[in-house]
Amino acid sequence: MKKFRLAIIFTLLLTFGLVSFANAAVVNKQDNNVQWLGHSATLITTEKGLDVFIDPWITDNPKCPVTKENINPDLILVTHNHFDHMGTDVPYFVEKNPNCIVVVHNDVVSALNEMGITEKNIVSYGMGLNYGGQAELEGIKITMVQAIHNPSAAGYIIELEDGTTIYHAGDTGIFAGMELLGNLYDIDLALLPTGSTFVMNPFQAAHSLKLLKPKKVIPIHYGTFEVLVQDATEFVKLSKKIAPNVKIEVLKPGGSLRL
């Protein structure tokens, strides 16, 4: 009976224009959007419209379907300073958006300085982060975690404004600490390299899902060069057997996933 009375009141409000579906739609939250731009490059657009760009290799990236002019990041996260992750476009993005903050490992700060990026645009007053360090920028919590690759390689746990948690592994092999990450964080989406040679192969990447326990996964870092695994077929096949509860989202470069 109470629900019936509420329905009548709401109908009357609609009738006299005191409330409308149009106005109600304005306050509905927007989805978070994750766009894979080939290799490791990933653009996250949050529900509040902030752009977080991870591994901003655009120019000379053979798999990237957009140009740097199409992107205007508020935050840039670099997993390490190899050419296929840091790229050469960071100065362009900082000039385009003078308030852009770049998050890097402390040992990579000097490489940014050589590109002309000063402490104003580098996290932690120009000092960078190290493993376990966290920065809260524009309401987004960014935690640097280890990656098994070169000495200053990192991954990131990214907690968006609404609590959605994304793990971008950067370049890494499988490591036991992934289980700890899976216990510490309720990971909604993991982006994992699957291309072998320099990173996890499909077998290791599939087993890492058992450790991380994400709800969804996007395979990345494959198919860019001949030396890498060329597609996600084996990863998908193995993951369905090893971690059947994880939803696998295979994207084409430029493809998006809404969270």
Rank of each mutant, 00 (worst) to 15 (best):
L13P: 07
L13I: 11
L13E: 06
L14R: 01
T15G: 12
T15W: 13
T15F: 09
T15R: 11
G17K: 01
G17Y: 00
L18I: 09
V19W: 06
V19M: 11
V19L: 14
S20P: 12
S20Q: 05
F21Q: 04
F21M: 13
N23V: 11
A25S: 14
V27A: 12
K29Y: 08
Q30D: 12
N33I: 10
N33Y: 06
W36D: 04
H39T: 06
A41F: 00
T42P: 04
T42E: 01
I44G: 04
T45I: 13
E47R: 15
E47D: 11
K48P: 05
L50V: 04
L50A: 09
V52W: 00
V52D: 02
F53G: 05
F53W: 05
I54M: 04
D55M: 06
P56A: 06
W57L: 06
W57R: 10
D60I: 09
N61H: 12
K63Y: 09
K63S: 12
C64Y: 05
C64K: 02
C64T: 08
P65G: 09
P65K: 09
V66G: 07
V66L: 10
T67H: 12
T67V: 03
K68P: 00
K68E: 13
N70W: 03
N70K: 03
N70V: 09
I71P: 00
N72R: 14
P73D: 03
P73W: 02
L75F: 07
L75K: 01
I76D: 00
T79C: 12
T79Y: 09
N81D: 12
F83C: 02
F83E: 15
D84E: 09
D84N: 11
H85Y: 09
G87Y: 03
D89L: 02
V90Q: 06
Y92M: 02
F93H: 00
P98G: 04
P98N: 12
N99T: 15
C100V: 02
C100A: 11
C100H: 02
I101Q: 04
V102G: 03
V102F: 00
V103Q: 07
V104D: 02
V104F: 08
N106W: 09
V109D: 01
V109E: 01
S110V: 14
S110H: 12
S110I: 14
L112N: 05
N113I: 10
E114T: 13
G116I: 10
I117Y: 00
I117W: 12
T118P: 05
E119S: 15
E119H: 14
E119Q: 14
E119R: 13
K120P: 02
N121K: 07
N121T: 03
I122V: 11
V123I: 14
S124L: 15
G126Y: 15
G126L: 14
G128A: 11
L129C: 15
